[in-house]
């Protein structure tokens, strides 16, 4: 259930973000989810792609600083309070959240989450029968 997420260091420079997507597109790599964290000085692009190792190699060839790390993804009902109830499971188990991003295309909300204890987070969510998304599922969306 662990998903490999790519993280790319970016300078705050016009067009730089799109260069990354352009490079991946040309290599026929699909991006299933992404998020940009920005500070006044630089940005970090995080994304889930169809082939993380290939994407990493190609971006490195293009001189980007790239890091691959583990995240989880899960689905909650797209109703008020549903996300809160899920995150409570994690906080009750003492699991910290570093960041998350998500969206709700219909009946369900999809969340990508980075935690300081991925293994335990998976264990807790499974125990509570939450709907975890596997890497292969996510790449297909």
């Amino acid at each position: 259930m662990i998903i490999k997420q790519l993280s790319v260091f970016l300078e705050n420079r016009a067009g730089r973000l799109n260069e990354v997507f352009g490079i991946l597109g040309q290599a026929n790599i699909n991006v299933s989810a992404c998020s940009v964290a920005d500070t006044s000085e630089f940005g970090i692009l995080r994304m889930i792609v169809s082939d993380p190792e290939k994407a990493r190699a190609i971006l490195k060839e293009n001189l980007f600083s790239v890091n691959v790390n583990d995240v989880i993804s899960f689905a909650t009902p797209n109703t008020p309070g549903a996300l809160s109830r899920t995150l409570e499971i994690l906080s009750d188990a003492g699991i910290g959240i570093e960041y998350l991003y998500g969206f709700s295309p219909g009946d369900k909300s999809f969340i990508v989450l980075k935690s300081d204890n991925i293994e335990k987070a998976i264990e807790e969510l499974q125990k509570h029968e939450m709907e975890l998304i596997s890497a292969s599922d996510l790449y297909k969306f």
């Binding site: 997420q5 993280s7 630089f42 600083s65 790239v66």
Partner: peptide, 9 residues
């Protein structure tokens, strides 16, 4: 920021 020093945080 070289690749080997880069972290996601």
């Amino acid at each position: 920021v070289e690749d080997r020093f880069y972290q996601d945080k």
